[in-house]
């Protein structure tokens, strides 16, 4: 089969070609689902004590939605986790973006702050978890602290890059037009750096979710991570799967929300 690497190749021109692609895509998912059902329920090739069957998955979902699991319903746990992610993310963005602007704009500020940053930055966010638990216990505060450190770094770095990447003529034009300091920030620097700032926020959100789930896995009283943890200890793979699916869905949903905010914040971009 010949390689199809032309740049236009991924924009299939013909209708039959596009339908074939859709077909292949849905087809593979369906095949997998069928295999899942078949191997676990029909033939017993995969032991359901290790990997849940679709039926078990469905039953566990019903359970956690109605009766609840790990001291809460699915909605309750999901809200708890989402709440923490949003809070941690907001604080990280609220501090990280202005700091990134400062460091991007002023070389002096960057030289001063960078050393501290360089010490903090290589530490993987998850490595903060034990320290956070030591300092703040198993409650919300510890989770938010860890999420903060995870989301903070990409927010700062991308904002800094975004400001640095502004073409000098734009700044010179702004100065030529007699722009005052605050207006320069709000009407020139931030809009110019906005695309990169949003990239940073996207990365920050991803990091926030990962860290939150991990933190809840290590120790929590509620939340999706707790569900996962308990299900693991109870040797209840179907519920583990439900937890993972919930994490995936919420992660996707919050990402879409951010993407929509991004789209609205920058109406001038050619979409």
């Amino acid at each position: 089969m010949t390689p199809s690497t032309s740049p236009g190749a991924h924009r299939s021109a013909t209708l039959p070609a596009r339908l074939t692609r859709r077909f292949l895509g849905t087809g593979s998912v369906l095949v997998l689902l069928a295999a899942w059902a078949g191997l676990t329920m029909v033939t017993d090739t995969i032991s359901t004590s290790r990997f849940p069957s679709p039926l078990q998955f469905w039953q566990s979902t019903k359970q956690i939605v109605t009766v609840g699991y790990a001291d809460g319903t699915l909605v309750g746990h999901a809200l708890q986790s989402t709440r923490l992610v949003v809070l941690g993310f907001a604080v990280a963005a609220g501090i990280g973006v202005p700091l990134g602007v400062l460091m991007g704009w002023s070389r002096r500020a960057e030289a001063l702050i960078n050393p501290a940053f360089l010490v903090i930055r290589p530490i993987p966010p998850l490595a903060w978890i034990p320290l956070a638990i030591l300092w703040l216990g198993l409650g919300d505060a510890a989770k938010i602290m860890v999420i903060f450190f995870a989301a903070f770094v990409p927010a700062v770095i991308n904002t800094l890059s975004g400001i640095r990447a502004i073409e000098p003529p734009i700044i010179e034009a702004a100065r030529m037009l007699g722009t005052g300091r605050w207006r320069l920030l709000s009407e020139v620097l931030l809009p110019a750096a906005a695309p990169m700032i949003f990239t940073g926020l996207r990365l920050a959100l991803q990091a926030a979710w990962t860290t939150l789930v991990a933190a809840e896995l290590v120790g929590a009283l509620a939340g999706l991570g707790r569900v996962l943890n308990m299900a693991q200890q109870d040797i209840y793979p179907a519920m583990v799967m439900v937890g993972m699916a919930a994490v995936g869905v919420l992660g996707w949903a919050t990402t879409r929300l951010l993407a929509e905010m991004e789209r609205r914040a920058m109406p001038w971009l050619a979409h």
Binding site: T210, V213, L228, A231, G243, M244, V247
Partner: peptide
């Protein structure tokens, strides 16, 4: 992809 790697830990 959207499932954070860490969520694979229980499995």
């Amino acid at each position: 992809r959207f499932i954070a790697p860490i969520a694979w830990v229980p499995f």
